[in-house]
Nucleic acid binder design. Structure first.
Lengths: 216, 216
DNA sequence: TCGACACTATCTGCATGCAGTGTTGAACGC
DNA sequence: GCGTTCAACACTGCATGCAGATAGTGTCGA
């Protein structure tokens, strides 16, 4: 071992992939931005190979799009595709809510309750940035509790692309309403009724999708 | 233009990716098979670069798994993950059935009916290989009709990995029962009731999942 | 006979070379 | 002023070089 306590990856390509992914999701790299392999290689002071690897992975994940002999650019996600993403998200969130209910325990109850409590305060205070974090955290908690790696991975992919799309389409969606929906999901999960939990989660996402279609 | 009439890809890496993907899905490359980049490069008479690109894409798609400094091998899909795949597939097939119902037209009716008719004959005759094809075709027709690229892509990924998993776990599942389920889905879609279509599709996949859990 | 160790072969992962191609912009004609 | 031509540039995509790491093999000692 050299020095630090890092466990797994430390392949340059892996680090680059995660870095670029973060920059895309955070909006630092906006949709349409060219992903020039030589330029990125120079920026990160590495050769072109690991950069190319990272870009290929981003393309495969639909976070970037490539044209023949023109390389890749950060994906531009259309309104139509955003709706399609929400169609997927609706049923996937429903599924994880159902599974989480079947695996419900005190630890899950505590963490969801903590998130919900803070979220309510934050929403009333109008802290939008923190609202987004708590919103994401709430859903993340549920999908981790569902213990379905397949569904979790899909939701991750959907969520990433939704965030990218949001860079051009700000869907605020109402913080108070979000808290209200989350409360309903929490109660359904807590009641031990998988069916109710699924319906509550679906209704939550469905409402967001409708907002999306309405807003032009 | 050189000679042939092929339109888009013509990147070596793209062709390799599709070829390897097909071989994995078809079972020609069995789970656990090492994907040695130099060996594949020699087999296909190309350099290691496009092979590496293809392997990276397979890994990103979870059709291959890699270990640090040991490269990739064809994914081994556990029983637990197969169940997880079916949990995802259940809700995804439900979603596309719902959407297909909303977009139902005569063309869809014709193609589904044709598939269903042949499927019934084939099932009675006990032609298992053809049964698998028709089964897949039926679901493919519905998810194309749904016109949701996001859901379609997810289902493709799920289906690929299910096929890989099936190489070690033969789940026959009853051809006649499959036809019966498909008939119910067809009728629900045709009736124009999205809710019913979703439920029918989900019930179909759910039944397969139960079979999976039961069979050891 | 059996285990430890060193050695070899092979592969991964990063770096780099290079031909073909798309893009840009400037010179030129009109 | 405006459109066209063409040449320089930049980048993609494939090929290849190479250091480090890992697995497999054989040898030696007990």
């Amino acid at each position: 071992m050299t020095s630090s306590l890092q466990a797994d990856p430390q392949r340059v390509g892996e680090v680059l992939y995660k870095t670029l992914r973060d920059r895309i999701i955070s909006g630092e790299l906006r949709p349409g931005t060219r992903l020039s392999v030589p330029a990125l290689a120079e920026e990160f002071r590495v050769s072109r190979s690991p950069v190319r690897d990272a870009v290929i992975r981003l393309v495969q994940e639909n976070l970037a799009a490539e044209t023949m002999n023109r390389g890749a650019e950060v994906a531009r996600i259309s309104r139509a595709e955003l709706v399609s993403l929400y169609e997927a998200r609706e049923v996937l969130e429903g599924a994880v809510a159902r599974l989480a209910t079947e695996k419900y325990d005190a630890a899950l109850r505590r963490s969801l309750l903590a998130l919900l409590t803070e979220h309510r305060t934050v929403a009333e205070q109008g802290d939008f940035a923190r609202h987004l974090e708590l919103d994401a955290a709430f859903h993340r908690e549920i999908r981790q509790a569902a213990k379905s790696p397949v569904l979790a991975r899909m939701l991750d992919g959907v969520q990433s692309r939704v965030l990218v799309a949001m860079r051009s389409t700000s869907l605020t969606g109402g913080m108070v309403q979000a808290v209200h929906d989350h409360q309903a999901i929490f109660e359904a999960i807590g009641s031990g009724d998988p069916e109710a939990a699924e319906l509550a989660a679906r209704a939550h996402i469905h409402r967001l999708k409708e907002l999306l279609s309405a807003a032009d």
